Amino acid sequence: MAAPADRVADAWRMLADLGVTITDLRDDLRARHPMPTVKEYLPVVAAAAGPGARRTYGNYWTRMGAMWGDRRLDEVTATDIETLRHETAESAVSRRNSRHGRHAGEHVIAAARAFYNL
C-alpha cells in the first residue's frame, strides 16, 4: 500500500529542511544494521541447515565463500550466481551418463536459494 502523495511530499520537505539526504539515511541504516559478509554468514547457514542440505549444498556454499567471502550478502548479484553456475557446470566431472554439468549447475542455483532463504 503506497503512502498518500501529500504525506510523501511532506516527508521530502522535512528531510530537505533538516539537510538530510537519502544517502545519509541509507548510510545511517547500514551503520546501525551492518550486513554480514558471505564468509561471516556461512556458519550461520550451515548451523541452520539440516544434514541433507549440508551434504548436498555444502561444497557449493564453500565455493561461494571462496569466491565472494569478503562481499556483503547484498552485494552478490544474480549475475555472480549465474557465473558460478556456468563455471561449476563446465568443471563437472564427465562420466558415461553425464549431462555435461547440467545438474551441478542446477545445484548451484538451489544452494544459493537455500543460502539466502536460511
Rank of each mutant, 00 (worst) to 15 (best):
R95L: 12
R72V: 08
R26H: 07
A5N: 09
D28L: 14
A47F: 05
E106H: 00
L42V: 08
D27G: 06
R30M: 05
A104H: 04
A89V: 08
I22N: 12
A78V: 02
R95E: 14
L25G: 03
L18D: 15
E82F: 04
E75Y: 14
L118M: 15
A16N: 08
N117H: 13
V44S: 06
A47P: 07
R113V: 07
L84E: 03
R54A: 12
S94K: 11
M64T: 02
D70C: 08
A31L: 07
A9Y: 08
A3F: 13
R13M: 05
M35R: 01
A104C: 09
G52I: 08
L73T: 08
L73F: 05
R13I: 05
R113N: 04
D70N: 13
A31E: 05
R95Q: 12
M35F: 06
L15G: 01
D28C: 07
E87I: 07
P34A: 04
G105N: 05
V108C: 10
R55Q: 15
R54T: 05
V20I: 08
A9V: 14
E82S: 06
R63E: 03
D17I: 11
G50M: 09
A104I: 02
K39P: 04
W12M: 14
V93E: 00
T79I: 15
A48Y: 02
K39A: 15
E75T: 04
S94C: 12
G105R: 00
A31S: 14
G52N: 11
A46P: 06
R54K: 12
V108S: 01
S91M: 01
G52P: 06
N97Q: 04
D10R: 10
D24N: 10
A78Y: 01
R7V: 15
A78E: 14
L18V: 12
R102T: 15
A16D: 15
M67R: 09
R30G: 11
G58F: 02
P51T: 05
G101C: 08
P4N: 15
L15T: 00
M35E: 14
T79N: 09
P34V: 02
P43Q: 13
R99H: 09
D80W: 00
A78C: 05
A16S: 14
V76L: 04
A66L: 12
V93Q: 01
T83W: 06
W12Y: 13
D17R: 07
A89S: 09
V8Q: 09
P34T: 04
A78G: 14
L18H: 12
E82N: 06
A49Q: 12
R63C: 00
A48W: 05
R113F: 09
G105D: 00
W12D: 15
A110H: 06
T88D: 01
E106K: 00
L84F: 02
V76T: 02
V44M: 10
T79H: 02
M14H: 10
M64F: 07
T56M: 14
A53F: 11
V108L: 11
